[in-house]
Amino acid sequence: MSTSTGGWHADEDLLSRYVRGDAGPVAAASLEQHLLRCASCRDRIAAHVPVPLLDAAWERVRDEAVAGRPRRLERLLVRLGVPAPDALLVATAPSLRTSWLVGLVVTLVFVGLGAAYGGDRGLTFFLLVAPLVPVAGVAFAYGPDADPSHEAALATPYPATRLLLLRTAAVLAASLPPVLLAALLVPALSWTAVAWLLPALSLTAALLAASTWVRPTVTAAALGAGWTAAVTSASRAADPTAVLAPALLVAYAVLGCLALLVLALRSRSLTTLGSPS
């Protein structure tokens, strides 16, 4: 590469305008060509570069590199208007990771197909699984089993109830639509294709209330066992949809409201470890 500059050097005004981005495309391109050959002008232009701004830009680049790429859900939540700090906290939940959600969709495809072509047994299987999907998701979104840093997180000022509710909302938003789609594959459900939502929400509320006493995973296991017993029993009596009888739907709604009330009254318990470990 030639180092000849023909005796010409850029003046201070041009260097300053170039750094500010005000030099115009022709002068900027010409100067860039010149800078490649002229060490003197490269030295002089350094004095025009705002160092703090450059440092700040470098730090941002470095932080992005070391922080790791934000999760897909985190980026989506930010695009939907959720504040970035909340999006980060929500997306950390294991049951909101891509692998969990992909597993959920695959499961629901099988459950839906089974319900569509498997007669009463398939329908029973769908009613067993559908309301428990959000319960499992919430159980693995909060608490010591979902977050290995739970104890350290408890000692921070971030409100535990807010974190629990944010993650619950995200789990419901992520898990209910695929279950609803799977429900469309179940002709035997007719109008009750959405009725299972009520026990699903009621069981989720019960899980939240119980998490003020015991670990969410323990409660989820107990609720799952109870719901399985109810559906199996109804199925043996020839009508699995009996668990969605109108009287029971009212009972689910009442239970859900009571559970939310318990959660509100006992939310203080979420701020401490529930049991020795």
């Binding site: 980060l88 290995p148 840093s149 350290a152 921070t156 971030y158």
Partner: peptide
Amino acid sequence: GYLPQEMGHPRGFTGFGFVDYMAVLKE
């Protein structure tokens, strides 16, 4: 500031990302 006896870390974080996560919890 509290360092528990057993301190786990959520999966997938870099060292910087984990401390950043805790900093968000610390407002």
